[in-house]
Amino acid sequence: MQRTTMDLWVGLFVIIGIVALMVLSLKVGNLNVYNPSQSYVITGNFENIGGLKVRAPVKGAGVVVGRVTDIQFSTQTYDAVVKMSLDSRFTFPKDTFASILTSGLLGEQYIGLAAGGDDVMLKDGDKVMKTNSAMVLEELIGRFLFDKAAKDDSL
């Protein structure tokens, strides 16, 4: 085998490999939307986080704007303290509503941010005051049965 053809093939191989790595990072991993190097962290207290996990996406109007970085249980308030790291290109008003939602019926849980109307924006280390807990299936069923029983009684 000639040295030059070999060099050519190896060069092609390396290029294909690098392209594959870039495709993985940009197309599959979506590196361009969420860059953890430029981000700010906000926290929120939730009464019940259901099945929310660290690294779950944080979405605004369905678009991923950040990720959950930490979940702690607070012994002062007896609720969950969720830290979210948001892309610094996306800022939200102070009175933004954070709720734990489910994608699809059995999909992953994520935090949905619904922007409020405040002029002041959330900064690094701020706390979201308005939160909405996860819907827990048992509670839903329990409430449904309770409602039904109450209706039955009233009839």
């Binding site: 197309k27 599959v28 991993g29 979506n30 939307v33 953890p36 690294r55 991923v64 990720r67």
Partner: peptide, 19 residues
């Protein structure tokens, strides 16, 4: 197909660790 993939696959945790 692509958007669900992109929202679930994380660069640091999945791709970097795989690498």
């Amino acid at each position: 197909y692509w958007s669900q993939m992109q929202s679930a696959v994380d660069f640091r945790f999945d791709i970097l660790n795989g690498f």
